[in-house]
Design a protein around this nucleic acid. Structure first.
Lengths: 239, 239
DNA sequence: TTAAGTCCTTGACCCAGATCAAGCCGGGAA
DNA sequence: TTCCCGGCTTGATCTGGGTCAAGGACTTAA
């Protein structure tokens, strides 16, 4: 399908630190899979004989209770890793929210390779620590923020990520597309979709954001949005 | 202070996989620190020139917003790891809830050693993945469970851990001490301490738990408690 | 033995967000 | 060109858990 050398996530995925020879070996055990928007990639509890990186598109990690209540526990963007070495069954549902392409490795060969290739294990550790930090920030959002602050937090997170990807300049209004439906946003934030809709409308009415259609968001003043999110004005950057 | 060989967390902490020679090297850079119940070990944002394992006692990881709202984002038990290699400032407040002893390593030497000792990095990856799973389960609790389910979930988590530590037999009523105040439980669960108190009383009135004093909890029927927590009756074990 | 402090419980009331319900909007199929 | 249909908005009402307030149960200190 594609050479690792010109892979769009070459420098951010688990393989980021690999040397050319290591990359060759990975190359030989990788294969691509595509899923359409809305498809379930993996069901929680199912056998999972591979691990993978998201190459393009967006997927979600969700947990569901017997009575149908669901909570999103991860948002998978390009370069994010799916699956856990050493675990044979999926712990969460993985659903494609847009069309996606994943770069897969059969689990066993990947595990073997991890033992012999510290560069992979190192990178995976780093990525896992980042995800843990994100999960902890998210816990504050879920546990203590109001509905309005939750929405503002989510917009800030998505906006910041988009800015990191596409721009480096810091000034001017930020524009991006929401990759999530109102319902998915509700599952992310522990709200109902009605509340999400109301709070998005309220932020719009108050001029914190501008909407173009239902999905395109313009943020005239990022600091204002961060204030609404209840975050430190400087975003609390860590090194 | 103590030899690694007879350290109580020797086989569960970051050093679990180390060979004798690796352990010797760790031994030479380690030092112990003690903190009293209530003491703050580290303030979020402060410089942090060490990483550490909890040897005994319990500590919490919390995040605080400017207006004082706080959310616990981690509960640190013996063998748990504190700090992040590569990061020089603490991202969270760490507070001792009981008297604790920590086994510390200066950050730089530890990082150097990690590069040269895959056994340490491997173990840290495994522990971090476990924590990420725990954080995700916690997100479901915070986002979607009712106050009663939250309390039942917390009791189930603490009860299960105690059972794993002290008993192996599966039958009979489970007894344990709550290591947290009502306020800490509230911070864990995204509730107020009044609601925690009310729901604990309600579970007691309904016979789900029995209280001896305010801290000692007896669970006559673990399955009943898990039902109240909204979990699968079998606890959803993963390999 | 009292006093002061910490932790916990309980009651009364209120409100943010859930629930229930109706209808709008825009795109694709016939 | 109309008709779905999925995604979204908005209104009316209800309620779980927050807030405010009072007081109980221990523990330590004088």
């Amino acid at each position: 399908m594609q050479e690792c050398a010109d892979c769009p996530i070459r420098h951010r995925a688990v393989c980021a630190r690999c040397e050319p020879d290591e990359l060759d070996r990975l190359d030989s055990i990788k294969y691509y899979r595509s899923f359409e928007a809305g498809q379930t990639v993996i069901w929680s509890g199912d056998a999972m004989d591979f691990v993978a990186s998201v190459v393009s598109g967006i997927a979600t990690l969700t947990q569901t209770m017997e009575d149908g209540r669901t909570q999103m526990v991860g948002l998978l963007l390009p370069s994010d890793f799916v699956g856990r070495p050493g675990r044979s069954r999926a712990a969460y549902d993985v659903v494609a929210t847009t069309d996606i392409v994943m770069c897969c490795f059969r689990r066993k060969p990947f595990e073997d390779m991890m033992v012999r290739t510290p560069h992979i294990a190192q990178r995976l550790l780093e990525m896992t620590l980042d995800e843990l930090d994100a999960a902890r920030e998210w816990m504050l959002v879920l546990g203590r923020k109001t509905a309005r602050e939750k929405i503002a937090s989510l917009l800030a997170i998505i906006g910041r990520r988009d800015a990191a990807l596409y721009l480096s300049g810091k000034a001017g209004p930020l524009t991006f597309d929401l990759p999530l439906t109102r319902e998915a946003m509700a599952d992310y934030l522990g709200l109902t979709l009605e509340t999400v809709s109301r709070q998005v409308s309220a932020l719009k009415k108050d001029g914190v954001i501008v909407l173009e259609g239902k999905r395109r968001v313009i943020v005239p003043d990022m600091n204002r949005l961060l204030e609404e999110a209840g975050d430190d004005s400087d975003g609390g950057m860590l090194s």
